[in-house]
């Protein structure tokens, strides 16, 4: 009996090891991440060499873009969506507000080539990377040979953003019994569990589903959300339930950045008469939230700020250039 269990365990370990190895193709993970980080902060990847991933994804804002409702790309071009935070992506199932992208290592193709973001072509990116000295060196350290290829660039960017892990907020410490929450924060947490956790569920406060939280359509943007991906009318106006980690730093809010402050977000959920027809029933069942309830909820949301993450030098830009 005991023997069997041991054998099964060994088998599982053996299988797990093979999977990891075959996934890596002999890559040096740390060096791949380092390459990804260098690329993330380098504006050379954009058509006019002004815009890096880090231009839109700022560390102090949990890699969202503070104060920009819609993204700003090369030549001052304005995009159609709000820049989301980048955190705990390895635990997510789909990427972008509508889940259009299923594989994190493929995600970078979109900003690199999108007209309103970095606006570059893949052949030109290779040419430019070929002409900078550091790229071959970092490629060799990461992949064992100096060849510069698009799949290598994509994998490195994907690996770097996958390391952006935020799980050490005051709330996490309280949850682990290592810190305290004030009474108003506790009350906020109770309200959150009652009204918000139906969608903002799990360790990252998202259930990874696509829903409508009742925002009326912006008639200029005409963003139909998830429908564009699934081509299913039922998904019209549905967007990804976003993680709420570091939400105190990622303003403005929602897929189109329509709310500047958390106060505005709470007013949206509390004033049920403004909800669009397509609002999910789970939003409709939120009880009217009075002023104190809203403040308590905000106090709770602010406990999700992870100062260590926002300052972690392993993710920062400064050290890249030193």
């Amino acid at each position: 009996m005991h023997h069997k269990i041991v054998v099964i365990c060994m088998l599982v370990v053996a299988i797990a090891t093979t999977v990891v190895q075959s996934g890596n193709h002999g890559e040096q993970d740390e060096a791949v991440v380092a390459l990804g980080r260098r690329l993330f902060y380098d504006p050379v990847l954009s058509v006019d060499q002004t815009t890096s991933c880090g231009t839109c994804h700022q560390q102090f804002a949990a890699f969202a873009h503070v104060d920009h409702a819609l993204s700003h790309g090369v030549y001052g071009r304005i995009g159609t969506r709000n820049v989301p935070a980048l955190q705990n992506l390895a635990s997510r199932r789909g990427f972008m507000w509508d889940g259009a992208i299923e594989h994190l290592d493929m995600q970078a193709l979109s900003p690199l080539t999108s007209h309103a973001e970095m606006g570059e072509t893949l052949p030109r990116i290779l040419e430019k990377l070929d002409s900078v000295g550091w790229c071959r060196t970092l490629m060799t350290q990461a992949y064992g040979s100096p060849d510069i290829t698009i799949p290598r660039v994509l994998r490195a960017l994907g690996r770097f953003v996958a390391t952006l892990e935020s799980r050490s907020s005051r709330f996490d410490r309280w949850h682990a019994g290592q810190d305290t929450l004030a009474e108003n924060e506790r009350r906020g947490y109770d309200l959150f569990r009652a009204y918000c956790a139906s969608c903002h569920n799990g360790i990252d406060f998202t259930d990874d589903s696509f829903r409508s939280n009742g925002l009326p359509l912006d008639s200029l943007l005409m963003d139909h959300g998830r429908e564009r991906v699934t081509l299913d009318e039922q998904d019209r106006y549905r967007f990804k339930v976003p993680s709420l980690r570091n939400v105190g730093r990622t303003m403005p809010y929602m897929h189109d950045g329509r709310f500047k402050r958390l106060r505005d977000v709470l007013a949206h959920y509390a004033q049920q008469d403004d909800l669009a027809d397509h609002a999910d029933p789970l939003v409709r069942s939120i009880a009217p939230l009075d002023d104190r309830a809203r403040k308590d909820l905000i106090a709770f949301l602010l406990t999700l700020t992870d100062e260590a993450f926002l300052r972690d030098t392993a993710f920062g830009e400064k050290e890249v250039w030193e």
């Binding site: 259009a100 299923e102 290592d105 193709l109 979109s110 999108s114 698009i150």
Partner: peptide, 19 residues
């Protein structure tokens, strides 16, 4: 994930806005 060779997204045979 990304593939080398014929499946390299470089060839422009990939929809970047959707997988």
């Amino acid at each position: 994930g990304p593939r080398e060779g014929a499946l390299d997204p470089m060839h422009g045979m990939y929809w970047t806005w959707s997988t």
